[in-house]
Simulated assay, not measured.
Amino acid sequence: MGLQIGDKIPHFKAKDSNGNDFDSNNLIGIKPLVIYFYPKDNTPGCTAQACGFRDQYVDFTDLGAEVIGISSDTVDSHLGFSNRYKLPFILLSDSTKKIRKLFGVPSGLLGMLPGRVTYVTDKNGIVILIFDNSLLATKHISKALTAIKKIVS
């Protein structure tokens, strides 16, 4: 069983799209987080989702939140994806699927693809929203933004 609402997200480390070390402890306790797991760079649904987060990124940051996208793609793939679509937020490479397992993200599409799940946490890392929907990729953005607005107002 994966994370539930009210759980604290686990500590994790990964490489970002520039090959830099990312440590979740550098953000937990400081700002609310939107952590979204997606199947694959440069696929139609994942691109639409990433561009949706890009287009509303300022709305998230104006509320003090940070957006983090995670997939099992390589650092190089993330760099190309990020540059191609001018993504302003953090993309993390989870090539071993260790972070996905820590969160308990289920597989999507009859177990054939990695799942698409968005977690929203308050600034202390407590999960306030879990949106698990592989088919409605762009719906994740509005759900996450609504959740962030509720905790900062």
Rank of each mutant, 00 (worst) to 15 (best):
Ala137Asp: 13
Phe89Gly: 00
Thr146Arg: 12
Ala48His: 10
Gly6Ser: 13
Ser77Glu: 10
Ala137Gln: 12
Leu91Met: 13
Leu135Asn: 09
Ile99Asp: 05
Glu66Cys: 07
Lys97Ile: 13
Met1Val: 08
Thr74Phe: 00
Ala137Arg: 09
Lys98Gln: 13
Lys97Trp: 00
Thr146Cys: 03
Ala14Arg: 02
Gly64Met: 12
Leu110Lys: 15
Ile148Tyr: 02
Val127Ile: 14
Asp23Arg: 09
Lys15Ser: 15
Gly111Thr: 12
Asn133Pro: 07
Ile5Asn: 00
Thr74His: 04
Lys8Glu: 02
Val67Thr: 03
Met1Phe: 03
Ile148Val: 14
Ile130Trp: 05
Leu136Arg: 15
Thr146Asp: 11
Leu102Asn: 07
Pro114Arg: 01
Thr121Pro: 07
Lys143Met: 07
Ile126Ser: 01
Leu135Asp: 03
Met112Cys: 02
Leu135Val: 10
Ser24Asn: 13
Lys8Gly: 01
Asp59Met: 01
Asn83Gln: 14
Ile9Asn: 00
Phe22Tyr: 09
Leu3His: 00
Tyr36Met: 09
Gly108Ala: 14
Phe89His: 10
Thr96Phe: 09
Val127Asn: 02
Leu27Asp: 06
Gln4Asn: 15
Pro88Ser: 09
Phe81His: 06
Met112Gln: 10
Ala48Leu: 13
Ala14Leu: 10
Tyr36Val: 10
Leu135Arg: 12
Ser93Asp: 02
Gly45Trp: 04
Gly52Phe: 01
Leu3Met: 06
Ala65Val: 14
Glu66Thr: 08
Ser93Leu: 03
Asp132Met: 03
Phe131Ala: 11
Gly19Ile: 10
Gln56Ser: 11
Gly6Pro: 13
Gly69Thr: 10
Ser17Asp: 03
Asp132Tyr: 08
Ser142Thr: 14
Phe12Arg: 05
Ile90Val: 07
Phe131Glu: 10
Ser72Gly: 12
Asn83Leu: 11
Phe81Ser: 04
Pro10Glu: 01
Ser82Asn: 14
Pro114Tyr: 01
Val34Met: 08
Asn42His: 13
Gly80Pro: 05
Cys51Thr: 13
Val120Leu: 07
Gly19Tyr: 11
Gly45His: 04
Ser72Thr: 09
Gly69Ala: 04
Lys123Ser: 04
Leu110Phe: 15
Gly29Leu: 08
Thr47Asp: 06
Met1His: 11
Ser82Leu: 09
Phe12Met: 02
Asp62Phe: 11
Ile9Trp: 04
Tyr57Gln: 01
